[in-house]
Nucleic acid binder design. Structure first.
Lengths: 115, 115
DNA sequence: GCTTTAATTCATTATTTCCCGAAATAATGA
DNA sequence: TCATTATTTCGGGAAATAATGAATTAAAGC
């Protein structure tokens, strides 16, 4: 289905472009249902071909999925991979340190205090 | 002191390079104390000039701070900005959805750790 | 089969990124 | 001052990225 070479670095890089980050945020707000490419392009006022490249970059990174609905391509968030990325940032990068994770630190040590 | 143009996109971009992501992880593991550039270069086996560019990119993004200790430059994590980025990802991007944030979702809807 | 709609691919161009070695800068100490 | 150590800046070249419009593919309906 997908090359599945989605490293955390590649995922961060995918979010590291301002327009792509907006795409990501907009698609997430569409929930499971997702949004057709045309709607995203219209909302962000960007050329279809430009958007298409960004969508496939986000998809290659594993952050979005796509399905076809009649003539339209619907993009939606890939919850599993986003969860993995969040966990990587909190656990692996920040090691659950409250100073770095803020309120989310509770989730990093499973609610247990560090020893 | 600092241009302070640290958008979330720029911060993600800074983490979007494999070597820079390793630098970030290594520096975080050094805690408040931080690590001199030379030690980082040695640990990651990278040319000093190459590392210097990556360090300043991470610093421009607001993720690291630097101070001088005699001849050496010590780099350390910038906790406040990292916390902001974590919060942006969880709150703004993922809107605290448990499906996207995993265990960290507890932090997004009020910060209570799961007891 | 033809037309319309929707999205992607392609080719081009411009820009940026990345890495290296060499030179420059900064701080220290003899 | 001179030498040493540590890091940054500079310059260049290769590779990757981004935006654009034109052409192409895909699905649907008549």
């Amino acid at each position: 289905m997908m090359p599945a070479h989605q490293s955390p670095a590649q995922q961060f890089a995918a979010l590291g472009n301002p327009l792509r980050l907006e795409v990501f945020r907009f698609v997430i707000r569409a929930g499971r249902e997702g949004r057709p490419a045309g709607e995203i392009a219209q909302h962000l006022d960007v050329a279809p071909s430009t958007l298409s490249g960004h969508l496939s970059a986000l998809q290659r990174a594993g952050l979005l999925t796509s399905r076809r609905d009649r003539q339209r391509m619907i993009y939606a968030v890939d919850p599993g991979h986003v969860r993995d990325l969040v966990e990587f940032l909190l656990h692996d990068c920040c090691q659950g340190q409250p100073e770095l994770c803020g309120l989310a630190s509770a989730a990093c040590d499973g609610g247990r205090p560090p020893d």
